[in-house]
Design a protein around this nucleic acid. Structure first.
Length: 581
DNA sequence: GGAACTAGCGCG
DNA sequence: AAAGCGCGCTAGTTCC
């Protein structure tokens, strides 16, 4: 399956770094040792002219952890084409239902649940690699890495469906490359534009600290209506007591609860909460901490979520408020391609379930309009809540009421999520299209179920167990869809990355040096969020980049679902700011 | 005085 | 209409 592919496994050893060339079958061809400082240069040479034994094939770097090994390369201006991230692949293989239960990769080891190695931004030196430190990050010593790689290849070859699990490992590995590159390049961020939004929304920032103007006004108004000049707006318990005193019997201070009450304090209070949120999460302090040299550089954590979605750490990269997207501004001479997939999850569901009727409704731009058009429900809004209810497991309200209509119209798709829920409720494990399995039920969960079904179970225990079963069912119901959507998105990202790399570099005077030495001279990914991405591109390459983003979406669909007739239409725009309607 | 918790809200 | 999935982050609160 991997015949002809060349692997170069790297790890620590001796006085520095050891690289081992393997042929497609895993046989060792050569081995060399060099110092940490030579690492980028060695990679540069191999990427340009692969070793004779592996010439003519794509080199794949095999390493313990992408953040740890690739970041120094990017800092030195070196990119790689392909890699295998053993930490991420281990996590997949270890729990995948597609991997045989007796595979060596599944026995307990130091690769289990190893956190990502943390790479200090300003310290590209490989000081962290000199030890095989167990506490943080997976093993990095060359023998441990070679052994793990061998275990992983064996597990994949013996898997129930080698192609799928191989695809998933490749997709997660390339996603790790993208994450490292996006951190290196950063998201172009216009501090002045951000500050303009803050001033417009929050009001002028007082020189001596304290609240911005608009917020201070709102505090004053709220206090008048609460008839308490010292009322606290930031402490939920105190605020709740103040509200009770003026006759607002709210049970919590959340906005969807407060919205239900008619009282003059409500409007300014809700407005205050909206502003306070912006100030706390993305105010001037956030700017000072996270935006440097015109770039926002969060740490992306590929597959950081159980479902395989990305997580992030620091700066709230995945929660940038829509309103602040207008601060995302391209460098001079550059622009953005901004794209998102319309209704990714139901499309993925249609394809996984081979549900031709749902795929038919999904044909074209708007899947929800298609559900209306085929007569399943009367309005687009109903189509949307019904579909979300089906994928999330709604039990009450409009959503739950409408789901049966979807069951009649799209029995195969609905059977897939219903079955995933049933398996979860029974304590079982569900698996995505490419083979990522959800965590098993915890011992406590199983114990609670046994307790409730036994003779001695009390009503309260039965109730709690039933609720826990329902919770797990909704989790597994959503897992298969969200997780497969994440796989599609990783495939999309990987394809976009590979195709962008083929575009010609721009001359030095048209480069974007703040994007770092490895990425400054060509279009590159700058942001990714579940089902949308932003490419930062020289103006002259914008149309080509947009075409790549589109065709990559189609490729991702074929890669996962073959010839099944499902399309993945994009909302796509080219423009100097990343603001979307 | 810090760790661990919750509430609330931003994103998909 | 705020029910039903997955997250991260801040501020306030509680507990040691």
């Amino acid at each position: 399956m991997v015949t002809g592919a060349g692997w170069i496994v790297v790890g620590t050893g001796g006085a520095g770094v050891v690289a081992v060339g393997l042929d497609g079958a895993g046989a060792e061809l050569w081995r060399e040792t060099f110092t940490e400082g030579e690492w980028p240069d060695r990679v540069r040479r191999r990427e340009r002219a692969p070793h004779a034994e592996t010439a003519g094939t794509a080199v794949r770097w095999v390493w313990s952890d992408t953040a740890r090994w690739y970041s120094p390369l990017l800092a030195a201006g070196v990119r790689v084409g392909r890699c295998r991230d053993l930490r991420l692949c281990h996590a997949i293989l270890r729990s995948s239902a597609l991997v045989r239960s007796d595979a060596a990769v599944r026995s307990p080891s130091r690769w289990d649940a190893a956190p990502a190695g943390d790479v200090p931004e300003a310290a590209p030196a490989l000081f962290a690699m000199t030890t095989d430190a167990a506490a943080d990050g997976p093993p990095a010593g060359i023998e441990a890495v070679l052994a793990e790689f061998a275990r992983q290849r064996a597990a994949m070859q013996d898997a129930v469906d080698p192609r799928r699990i191989e695809l998933l490992c490749a997709a997660d590995s390339v996603a790790a490359l993208v994450a490292a590159e996006m951190r290196a390049a950063g998201l172009p961020w216009d501090v002045a534009a951000h500050e303009a939004v803050l001033e417009e929304v929050l009001g002028r920032r007082p020189a001596g600290g304290g609240l911005p103007e608009r917020m201070a006004e709102l505090v004053a108004q709220v206090r008048v209506h609460l008839r308490d000049p010292a009322a606290s707006l930031d402490s939920p318990p105190k605020l709740l007591r103040s509200l009770h005193r003026v006759g607002v019997p709210a049970a919590s201070t959340s906005k969807w609860e407060l919205r239900e009450y008619e009282h003059p304090v409500i409007a300014p209070l809700l407005e205050y909460k909206r502003l306070a949120r912006l100030l706390a999460a993305n105010g001037w302090a956030w700017l000072a901490e996270w935006v440097h040299d015109g770039r926002f550089r969060p740490v992306y954590v590929p597959a950081g979520v159980v479902t395989g979605r990305w997580a992030s750490s620091g700066g709230g990269a995945l929660q940038i408020p829509r309103r602040l997207r207008e601060a995302v501004r391209a460098d001079p001479g550059w622009t953005f391609v901004v794209a998102d997939v319309a209704q990714l999850e139901p499309r993925v569901l249609a394809a996984m379930a081979r549900d031709v009727a749902l795929a038919q409704a999904a044909h074209g731009r708007d899947l929800y309009a298609g559900i209306v058009a085929d007569g399943t429900v009367p309005t687009r809004a109903e189509a949307k809540v019904a579909m979300l209810g089906a994928m999330y497991g709604a039990t009450t309200g409009d959503s739950a009421r409408l789901v049966p209509r979807l069951r009649r119209a799209y029995p195969r798709a609905m059977a897939l999520v219903d079955e995933a829920a049933r398996v979860g409720e029974d304590g079982g494990v569900v698996t995505t299209w490419l083979g990522r399995s959800c965590p098993p039920a915890s011992p406590q969960w199983l114990q609670a179920q046994r307790q409730a079904t036994g003779e001695t179970g009390t009503a309260a225990e039965r109730d709690r167990a039933r609720r826990a079963a329902g919770d797990r069912g909704r989790f597994t119901r959503n897992f298969v869809v969200q997780g497969t959507a994440a796989e599609w998105a990783a495939a999309w990202l990987g394809e976009v990355r590979a195709r962008l790399a083929e575009l010609p570099a721009v001359p030095p005077d048209e480069a974007a040096p703040r994007s770092g030495p490895a990425l400054a001279d060509r279009p590159h990914l700058a942001f990714f969020l579940h089902d949308e991405l932003i490419v930062h591109t020289p103006l002259g390459h914008a149309d080509a980049a947009a075409e790549i983003v589109r065709t990559a979406a189609a490729s991702a669909g074929r890669l996962l679902f073959g010839a099944f007739p499902i399309d993945f239409p994009l909302e796509l725009a080219i423009g100097p700011t990343a603001a979307k309607d």
